[in-house]
């Protein structure tokens, strides 16, 4: 079951990942990181498919993608 880990203090709230997520399960938090940006957060991790598009489009490498058990490569990155 794949999932993402977003580093609150690396995220600058640019929202590129929110739009990139095909599952629309990323949104901006009401809380702010150490630099005062609203950081992105996972809204519904059960629907995450581990496609990594959020991490690929993040300019600050603030997102890590992990998976447990079987996982399938949708494309070669």
């Amino acid at each position: 079951m794949p999932g993402v880990k977003i580093d609150k203090n690396h995220c600058k709230g640019c929202e590129l990942c929110v739009r990139a997520c095909p599952q629309n399960i990323l949104a901006m938090s009401k809380m702010i990181g150490i630099k005062g940006y609203f950081y992105a957060e996972m809204v519904d991790s059960s629907r995450c498919i581990g496609c990594q598009l959020c991490a690929i489009t993040c300019p600050d490498v603030a997102i890590e993608v992990h998976t447990h058990g079987t996982s399938f490569a949708l494309y070669e990155y």
């Binding site: 600058k12 489009t57 993040c58």
Partner: peptide, 27 residues
Amino acid sequence: NSKTLFARPEAMTDVVSHYCPGCTHGI
């Protein structure tokens, strides 16, 4: 049996960049 699909490359430091939010230099 958990696996990391995507993480910071070793050749990149863990420093928060000075680039503006959304600037694609970081990518």
